[in-house]
Structures are given as C-alpha cells and as structure tokens.
Design a protein around this nucleic acid. Structure first.
Lengths: 231, 231
DNA sequence: GGCTGTGAAAGTGTTCACAGCC
DNA sequence: GGCTGTGAACACTTTCACAGCC
C-alpha cells in the first residue's frame, strides 16, 4: 500500500469547505489577497481551530505566521469539492420553488449549470426560466443521458417525488437534492440530501420552547406565557 | 414546572423527531393505528435502533412486543417539538423563493402560520400570497411585536440579509431560518439555521467525484489517491 | 511576534446487543 | 414469538494546546 496518507475528508468538513469557498469568493471579489484563519472562521461562523483542521485535510494550505492566499485556497477548495469546472444538473418540478431555484443566477458562479428543467404540466413546458427552456418530464431519461448528468434537484409534489427519483436513478443520476417532504428510497451508491423547511422550522420551535423553559440564561427574560395577538 | 422528564434531547434527534412526525401524520391519514419501529424507521430512512433511542428521550412511548400507537405518538412528538398549537412566523423577502415558501400550504398542517409577509419592493406590496397580504418591510417591527413572533424566515438577497436579521433580532425574534447565502451574525441566545442549495450541491459534487475515483461500487474501503495534492 | 498545522483530549452522536415486557 | 427500551461499545466531531515555521 502506498505511503501517501489517504486523507478521508469527513462529511461535516466537506459541508464547511463549501461555505469557506463562498466566503473566499466574496473576499476575492473585494480584492483581498490573503486572509487569516481567524478572519475566515468568523466570516464563516465557525471556530478558527476547526477551520484550520478542516483545511488540513487538503494538506498544508497556508503560510505559517502569515495566513492563506485567497486565490490559491479558493482554487484548491473548488478542486477538492469537484466544482472546478461547471457540472451539469437537471431540475424536476417547475412549480414556484423549482422556478425560484432555476432562476437563481448564483449557481452558475458556484459550479453548476441546469441543462434540463422538466415538468409534467404541459402548460409550463416551453417557458424559459433562467435562460433554459422547460421540457416535458417524459424527456427526463433523454436529457440525463445526453449530458451525462449525475446530479439532480427534485422539487416536485411529494406524491410523485419517489417515482421521479426512481427514473432519475435508472437514467444514471447518482446524487439528488430533494425538496419534497418525503424520504426517498434509493439503492446503495446513490446519495440524497434532504431539504425540508418544515423540519427546520420545527427544530427552531423546539429550541425556542426550550429557551422559554430554560431558567436563568444571561438576560433575565421573564417567562412570558406565549401570548398571541397583543395589541 | 414539571421537571421530572427533563432529559436533554440531542439536536440531531430533534431534527429526526420532526421527520417521524411527518411520517406519522401520513400514516394517520391513511388510517393506520399502530406501527413498529422497523416500519417507521424505514419510512423515515433511519436505523430502527436509532429511532427507538430517539423516542426514548421522550420517555417510554410504545408497547413492548406490539409497537407504537400512531395517534398518541404523533401528539407526543408535536408537544415535544412545541408545535402542538400553531406558531406565528414572519417571512422577509417575497422574491421567487419567498413566494414559493409562503404559498406552500403544507406549513399550516405542520404547526406554522405566516402572520407577516414583508418585502422592500413597493411593487410587491399588496400582493396576496397564500392568503396573506404582502406588507412593506418598514412594518417589520410592528408585525413582530403585534403577534409576539419569535420565528422568522429570511429569503432576501444576500446583501441585505444581515441588516434584516439585525432588525428581526432587535424586534424580538429568537429563531431564524436563513436562505440567503451569507453567514448571519447573531447574539448569543438566537438560533439560526442555514439552508443553502449551493452548499448541498457542492457536497453532492464532492461525493459524486469520490464515487468516480473509487471504482468499487460497494462500501468504499479502498484508499483513493486523493487528487487534491500539489503545492 | 504571529499564525498555521496537528496530535491528543473531550464531547457528541450512532450502532449493537440484549434485557424486559407483552 | 415479537418488539420496545437502554446501557455499553464504537465512531465521529469538535476543541484544546502547543509544536513548527515564517
């Protein structure tokens, strides 16, 4: 076996690398040439030591006593994440949410291009969103194959998300972001990332509730009994 | 103050409880009366033992040898999460994404009501989305105070998200879901949950890339030669 | 002096295995 | 027999402290 240490990057770290990349891009645009772990960490909302540890999985990235070079670190992160060159994605479900995502110009600058926007509703087919024409969902397999797409975004109604997912996987997609409020079942080797606003809100509701119960934090916030409609 | 079952519920567990609640609601609608940990776990996409452990933080919930009663477990989860009765939220930024979220009827059934939809663009003010009228962002403080709102959703452009956040916090909001691609800075005691599709896609891009390098389709145990080296 | 890189320690979350109950 | 509830083992993450380098 080779002496080269196989650096397995923890998934939690990968998610933060994406955040660092975003911050670095903003810094680069504002003309910054170098940055310290403290600055970068504070802009990313993490602990500086943790940031250094995250970056250390890529091997030495900075200069001791100085900091990190914005440009080269950015390139390195993009390469590590696999977004150095733009990747093709498809998006299925051009309702309000799908249209919102497809119309968001920010993805292009972050390494993603929607090569297919698909919808089952004939009334939506032919619309142009973010410069791409909406096509009938029947063409899913064709679009995926034609562009060698491996990443898909699902924004369909919950009821059809699983069947759309099955078709995507059968067509060759291996990575899916799912916005439909259902748990997708996929074969081993396919990754799903679930985004569910209701879950986010419910987690906040729980934390919120705890704050009320939790006695004596810093600020003496008197136990207000959850009042609604106060004039 | 009933402090008898004052067990600390891990945050990872809280997020999964919200998923179980969603699954249970679907089961209840389809008429199911009871369910086993195995079934529930498979519908939620988790390991059965982990699900039982999650539920055990609420105290004994089921019947040994039988399973869980759908209705009572659902109630119990809703109470634990603090969504037993509907909670008021505001949403700031009625662009495509904000409109999509505000128009999604599913929140009502999951314990949330948008009592304020706010936007800075006069052209959008007065629109009615999901039964609620869009109001000028200047009324933010007033709306938050009038309804005792503690939970907000931010879907503004990145450039104004921090200032909107500051105003929300000053007005009394303690929990925020942020869709803008910036890291919000908040005082201690305020929770932020960040949702960023670019980050999700980049994590998938990374995993996707690893699959390509690692040829074995089964469990990835082969050390791959991490192609991010190079000084 | 300042800041990065990293092992070691502490903390958190997940999985296992089986005891306990129906 | 079947299924829940849970301590104990394991794996993963974060934090700390300081060595190493500029």
């Amino acid at each position: 076996m080779s002496e080269v240490r196989s650096r397995v990057i923890p998934e939690a770290t990968v998610a933060r690398l994406a955040v660092y990349l975003r911050v670095l891009t903003a810094l680069a645009e504002s003309g910054r040439r170098s940055v310290s772990s403290g600055e970068l960490a504070s802009a990313a909302g993490v602990n500086p030591a943790g940031l250094r540890k995250d970056l250390s999985y890529l091997g030495p990235c900075g200069v001791r006593g100085v900091g990190y070079a914005v440009g080269s670190l950015r390139e390195r992160l993009a390469r590590a994440l696999g977004v150095e060159q733009a990747r093709s994605c498809v998006l299925v479900g051009m309702g309000n949410l799908g249209s919102a995502l497809a119309g968001y110009a920010g993805f292009g600058t972050r390494g993603f291009t929607f090569v297919g926007l698909l919808d089952a509703d004939p009334a939506r087919v032919g619309d142009v969103v973010g410069g791409t024409e909406v096509r009938p969902v029947d063409e899913l397999e064709q679009v995926v194959a034609a562009h060698g797409v491996t990443i898909a975004v699902v924004t369909t109604p919950a009821g059809v998300a699983q069947s759309v997912c099955d078709r995507l996987v059968a067509a060759g997609v291996r990575s899916i972001v799912n916005f439909a409020p259902v748990t997708l079942v996929v074969p081993a080797g396919v990754d799903v990332r679930q985004v569910d606003l209701s879950v986010e809100l419910q987690v906040l509701a729980f934390l919120d509730q705890q704050k009320g119960v939790d006695v004596v934090p810093h600020q003496a916030s008197r136990p207000m009994t959850e009042q609604v409609a106060l004039p």
